[in-house]
């Protein structure tokens, strides 16, 4: 097994060496994706199921594309069309999947720990495609992969994550992965959206964006979920934009070659000014493109396909 675990449940505990292996493997698949025929037979005969208990557009499409490019047989279901709406438990759904002899399960679920739960009852490899506010490891891997592409190396980069850290699996996975890779990580957001004792994960915390943004190589803006305002976590989108929105003016104090990332979908004019999202600083679309290569790498590395990679 090229990775130490047969599952990818999160980036907590995943070593630098393993992340580098994932990146090197993604390099090969990225090359495949440039070819006229973008399909390789690597996972022929393997079956992957995509369990999406929570709505998702880009992550689901990215996984499905990665699976097809690897020639896997795939089954996808989302909560609205499956029996979960009939009250079937995750355990029963899982047991049914097991009976179908699935090799790899990709799961997105609103409950933190749902992928771990599956890994305990199934023999398949489990890939976490986002579990509540816990982890979203493939997103963080593709974020770091995009930065590696842009800057050539990750170590020593200064990254600032801005926004709703409390409810963000993207932030948490990036914090785990980036600190492992030697990136200097800071976060900034309203105090009500920064979870307690976050500093113990090795990140710096800022409440003043102008202060936080100084000398940063990378700004990652997180999506603000507008419903959080209703439960009183911040007063208004207007105030949020004024104090935590990424504007051209604010970017001036960052490094010259600063890079803007966003896991999408963007609330334009709230987290990010529209012209920034579309500017030269932005690698938002590169993130999406790299997502397929990273997911192909993960699928390949977890599939247990023994032969050396021939693509």
């Amino acid at each position: 097994m090229p990775l130490s675990s047969k599952h990818l449940l999160g980036l907590e505990g995943v070593s630098k060496k393993e992340i580098e292996l994932i990146f090197k493997t993604a390099d090969i698949f990225k090359e495949v994706l440039e070819r006229p025929i973008k399909r390789v037979p690597t996972l022929t005969g393997k079956t992957v199921v995509n369990l999406f208990y929570e709505s998702s557009t880009r992550t689901r499409i990215s996984f499905e594309l990665a699976e097809r490019r690897l020639s896997a047989d795939i089954v996808s279901f989302s909560a609205s069309t499956s029996s979960t709406s009939k009250g079937e438990t995750l355990k029963d759904t899982a047991r049914n999947i097991e009976a179908m002899k699935i090799d790899i399960v990709v799961i997105r679920h609103s409950a933190p720990g749902a992928p771990l739960f599956l890994s305990k009852i199934l023999n398949s490899s489990i890939i976490n495609a986002g579990d509540g506010a816990h982890e979203h490891p493939t997103q963080a891997l593709l974020d770091m992969y995009s930065l590696r592409e842009k800057f050539g190396k990750l170590e020593g980069l200064k990254v600032l994550i801005v926004g709703d850290i409390s409810h963000s699996r993207v932030a948490l996975s990036n914090i785990y992965g980036m600190t492992t890779m030697g990136i200097d990580v800071s976060v900034c957001g309203p105090a009500t959206l920064i979870p307690r004792e976050l500093d113990k994960l090795g990140v710096k915390i800022f409440y003043n964006l102008d202060e936080a943004i100084k000398h940063k190589n990378v700004i990652m803006a997180l999506r603000i979920q507008l419903e959080r305002q209703k439960v009183g976590l911040f007063p208004s989108t207007r105030e949020y934009y004024n104090y935590f929105g990424i504007t051209k003016e604010r970017l001036k104090s960052a490094k010259k070659d600063v890079v803007i990332m966003h896991p999408g979908p963007i609330n334009r004019g709230i987290e990010l000014d529209s012209d920034i999202a579309d500017s030269k600083y932005s690698i938002i679309l590169e993130q999406v493109a790299n997502g397929v290569a990273i997911r192909m790498a993960i699928l390949y590395l977890l599939s247990g396909v023994e032969s050396s990679l021939k693509v």
């Binding site: 907590e12 933190p112 720990g113 579990d131 509540g132 506010a133 816990h134 982890e135 699996r169 948490l172 979870p195 307690r196 004792e197 976050l198 113990k200 994960l201």
Partner: peptide
């Protein structure tokens, strides 16, 4: 419990 572990696990504290 709200604290380090709830932050780590993404569970509401």
């Amino acid at each position: 419990n709200e604290g380090y572990y709830s932050t780590k696990l993404g569970l509401a504290g």
